[in-house]
Amino acid sequence: MRLECPPNVKVIRVPCSGRVESFHLLKAFESGVDGVFVAGCLEGECHFLIGNLQAKRRVNYVKGVLKAIGINPERLQMYNLSAAMGSRFAEICWEMTEKVKRLGPNPVKTGRGKEV
């Protein structure tokens, strides 16, 4: 399968989405990243049982934090898909890229003040 992905998406591999800590997500925004999505396995299909559910909770928690500090929580998303869903992955990459483009750059880089 040769699927085209937007070149701006950087993939960070983790053994399970449950390995992603709230701090990792926040740190990405602190360092100026425009958007982040966590791609976990389908719900109910986590090899470690609840990794993807924990990831979902953490994503929601960090969304709240982003809102409180004036960054649009839409910049952070959680998706669930299986390793066999390559075309869906490419689709999500495009979707996220479009979303973030609409929102413009992370205000951390522009210092333009709260966006929400």
Binding site: S22, F23, L26, F29, E30, G70, R112, K114
Partner: peptide, 19 residues
């Protein structure tokens, strides 16, 4: 952990305000 997290949140908020 909470210190690390809060420091990052505060710094992010401030950077976004250009201060």
């Amino acid at each position: 952990r909470e210190v690390r997290f809060l420091a990052s949140a505060i710094k992010t908020a401030r950077k976004a305000q250009g201060r």
